[in-house]
Nucleic acid binder design. Structure first.
Length: 521
RNA sequence: GGGGUCGUAGUUCAGCUGGUUAGAACGCCGGCCUGUCACGCCGGAGGUCGCGAGUUCGAGUCUCGUCGACCCCGCCA
């Protein structure tokens, strides 16, 4: 049983069937979501990307009813009939079209379907493997369709906004020379030049610099980027970013532009966000949250215990601090109880990020204090640490000691875990923050040189040109570091970089700060 | 490159310290039903417990190997 559309014309989408169409004849086409066969009365939920409308068949249209009884999920139908208002007791308040239905006078089976290998209309989690194998079915699911439609709307909003602010959307090439940016390049073999490869861009970095130098002044692009690195749950090897570059601007101009952009994007997605965004300097953000992309929707900030432990009776801490290490902790809300196993699990969690151990100090409900530190550490020391951390009664302090990098990595991740475990994070809330005053360089212990912490965005000045002519090969290899004022949006965070000019170039060339000082002042 | 978790029906899962014929829900097939909307009711089919070896009287369960999936670290912003 399979029929052609013939001369049928779809008059509206399923989700568009509404009260204003009552008594008019419609033709809808779509996929069978569910069938409810009551014998001489068959209901079909017909679905397309706009939603679901209920089709009803009864013996008045015997042929349609007969076909309806054969119908199975995911068959593709064309249905013609009048839109009918439902009686009050049969209204379905759960769907937008729930006050009406289409009474089928004619029903055509445009295509049949096998039973789907997984349910399309339930919210059970399906193994990714199955979803990808049957991607065409996966993409029929409501969540997926809504994601794609939302993405379209957000992209449209971005284009309208950027256009209104005088930006040009300009496409840049994918098949080009390597423009190393820290990640591994994806390579594409060249047919014309055997043995040579194109590299897919990790971002349009070089191209947008070209555009600025060319005087295009304000550019943006919704652009695919490629990075050949290992995956994570939230990281894909190819992804899309809103890439922006502009000339002749100050930091405030960038803040203003991007806050407006994000407000528009989130508004499109149905969320209101607060402006202006919070602004925090890099050092403060690291000190308080251990990361440059803190989740500000909950507290549990880090407490610095380094001074409290500087003369500790626990030799390990004492020595660590002497060698430049730090000790920091997170105070868990008072009254939170932990079993021995739970504390062990937390310790195991923290170890992933490089800590040797996690210690804890706990104020007891009445008075006194306990800890996992050796017994040689006196109660008075513990009490003074608890006091410096501001502990109330019956409260745990989870403590990590080590190098600043390790301590911050451990506690930043522990903080997120605690926030999630203790259900302190609300999913539909967004708290933005600008992190400014990023250090441009970071000493790399292994390479024994300064490396750029992020893209060191810079402005083109004469000094650059001097360097470029001085060592063209090196500069070409690292040209990605020589860029313009600007910003990038990617990886779920937004960062603004200092526009200190020369230093990024020095780092790109592997010139130490001392040497740079000598040569360029 | 390293670590962790997991592989049982079409799907999502349960199956305790090894023990008789491996279960549930949904889905699927057949039947009944004119107001359902996660329809309901009656009946039924469906499994090499990822694969291979070992321990044992006996393995879905324990051991080793192997393949695969997911998550994390490294890496990446």
């Amino acid at each position: 049983m399979m029929e052609s559309m013939g001369d049928l014309h779809r008059t509206c989408y399923c989700g568009e069937v509404a009260e204003h169409l009552v008594d008019s004849q419609v033709v809808v086409m779509g996929w069978v979501d569910r069938v409810r066969d009551l014998g001489n009365l068959v209901f079909i939920d017909l679905r397309d990307r706009t939603g679901i409308v209920q089709i009803v068949t009864n013996p008045e249209a015997a042929e349609a009813l007969e076909k309806a009884r054969q119908v199975r999920p995911e068959w593709v139908l064309a249905v013609e009939g009048p839109v009918v208002r439902r009686s009050p007791d049969t209204v379905n308040p759960d769907i937008p079209t729930g006050t009406v239905e289409v009474r089928a006078c004619m029903l055509r089976v445009l295509n049949r379907s096998l039973t789907p290998p997984f349910p399309l209309n339930e919210q059970v989690p399906i193994a990714e493997e199955a979803r990808l194998k049957y991607r065409y079915l996966d993409l029929r699911r409501r969540v997926m369709q809504q994601n794609m439609m939302l993405r379209h709307k957000v992209c449209l909003a971005v284009r309208r906004y950027m256009d209104s602010r005088g930006f040009l959307e300009i496409e840049t090439p994918f098949l080009t020379k390597s423009t190393p940016e820290g990640a591994r390049d994806y390579l594409v073999p060249s047919r014309i030049h055997p043995g040579h490869f194109y590299a897919l861009p990790q971002s349009p970095q070089l191209f947008k610099q070209l555009l600025m130098i060319s005087g295009m002044d304000r550019y943006f692009q919704i652009v695919r980027c490629f990075r050949d690195e290992d995956l994570r749950a939230d990281r894909q090897p190819e992804f899309t970013q809103v890439d922006i570059e502009m000339s002749f601007v100050q930091m405030e101009d960038v803040f203003e532009l991007v806050e407006g952009l994000l407000a528009v994007m989130f508004d499109t997605a149905g969320f209101k966000i607060d402006r202006p965004f919070l602004r925090l300097p890099y050092d403060e953000v690291i000190a308080r949250f251990g990361t440059d992309r803190p989740d500000l929707r909950f507290g549990l900030e880090l407490t610095d215990l380094t001074e409290a432990f500087r003369h500790s009776e626990f030799p390990v801490f004492r020595q660590l601090i002497q060698e430049g290490g730090i000790v920091k902790g997170i105070a868990v809300p008072a009254g939170t109880a932990y079993s021995r196993k739970e504390l062990d699990d937390l310790q195991e969690f923290v170890r992933q990020y490089g800590a040797q151990a996690m210690t804890w100090i706990r104020t007891l409900p009445e008075s006194g204090v306990r800890s996992s530190l050796p017994k040689t550490v006196s109660e008075s020391e513990l009490l003074s640490v608890a006091e410096s951390a501001g502990l109330a009664k019956d409260q745990y302090l989870l403590v990590v000691a080590g190098s600043p990098a390790v301590v911050h990595a451990c506690l930043a991740n522990l903080r997120l875990k605690l926030g999630s475990d203790l259900q302190l994070i609300s999913d539909d809330e967004f708290r933005f923050v600008w992190v400014y005053d990023f250090p441009l360089l970071e000493w790399d212990v292994e390479e024994q040189r300064y490396v750029a912490l992020h893209h060191p965005f810079t402005s083109p000045q004469d000094d650059h040109m001097a360097l470029l002519t001085e060592n063209p090969t090196a500069v070409r290899a690292k040209a990605y570091d020589v860029v313009l004022n600007g910003l990038e949006i990617g990886g779920g965070s937004i960062r603004i970089h200092r526009d200190d000019v020369q230093r990024s170039v020095f780092s790109a060339l592997g010139i130490s700060p001392e040497e740079a000082e000598d040569r360029f002042g």
